[in-house]
Amino acid sequence: MVKDLSVDLCGVHLKNPVIPASGTFGFGLELSDAFDLNLLGGISLKGTTREARYGNPTPRIAECEGGMINSVGLQNPGIDVLVDEKVPALRRVYGGCVIANISGFSLDEYRECCEKADACKGIDIIEVNISCPNVHNGGMAFGTSADSAAGVTAAVKSVCRKPVFIKLSPNVTDIVSIARACEDAGADGLSLVNTFLGMRIDIARRRPVIANKMGGFSGKAVFPVALRMVYQVAHACRIPVMGCGGVASASDVIEMMMAGATAVQVGAENLRNPYACPEIAEALPHLMEELGINSLKEIIGTV
């Protein structure tokens, strides 16, 4: 029997639930010579701010057991280049769901960037990053209290007609209260989780491995924690969730969906294996056959 992998995110149809996570897939085109991007249900583009940013000093990457730390610091060409150049170029080769990931350092910046993303024809969903651990006074600063998360949500919702997903930080005491605050403020969906604030020390040099001292930890090791948060949030909120955190296989995708995710983002695994997303999408129907699943939509939140 033909398996139905399609899912629906606030009216946006995805041929499958597999989405490379923001920051782990550039602006999509970087991978267009590696495989047919149309194998992907969606693509979440690299986090974008109002002005171009160089990002943090190097080293920006530290390897860990079962994962890695990154501190790229939102290197991006700015929102105007995103909507005028990056998205149109991607659209020439990709017909799936394009998700713009927006970050900022003030409510005004979030609002202005989201307004431009909303007006850009090639973008289907706006993902608002209030959880980047690698910049000061921005990103995660907005995502660690329910009030400020709701403030950003309301601000961007006032200028967007497209679905707005708020990307949540796991570096909080109660992710459910923040998720609910975003839902109450009008969010159409939630993406979770971003990376976990982490650190490594080079014991020979007696200094942090990462130039910015700390960074975001992600990779296989975070999967059980991310899954738990997706489960809690999906059961506490009515809006759809994109599950993210340590996903590395088709079975991880199924697990995330059973926990309540409507779509699933693959992050750090792309850095180990640039072909991870198409391989997972290809493996899903076989795993569904083994598990007796005909349509992925049937399993969302069934646990």
């Binding site: 590696a34 990457i61 790229v72 850095l271």
Partner: peptide, 9 residues
């Protein structure tokens, strides 16, 4: 391969 921007100078 140019998509994570970890090694920028």
């Amino acid at each position: 391969a140019g998509f994570c921007y970890g090694c920028s100078i």
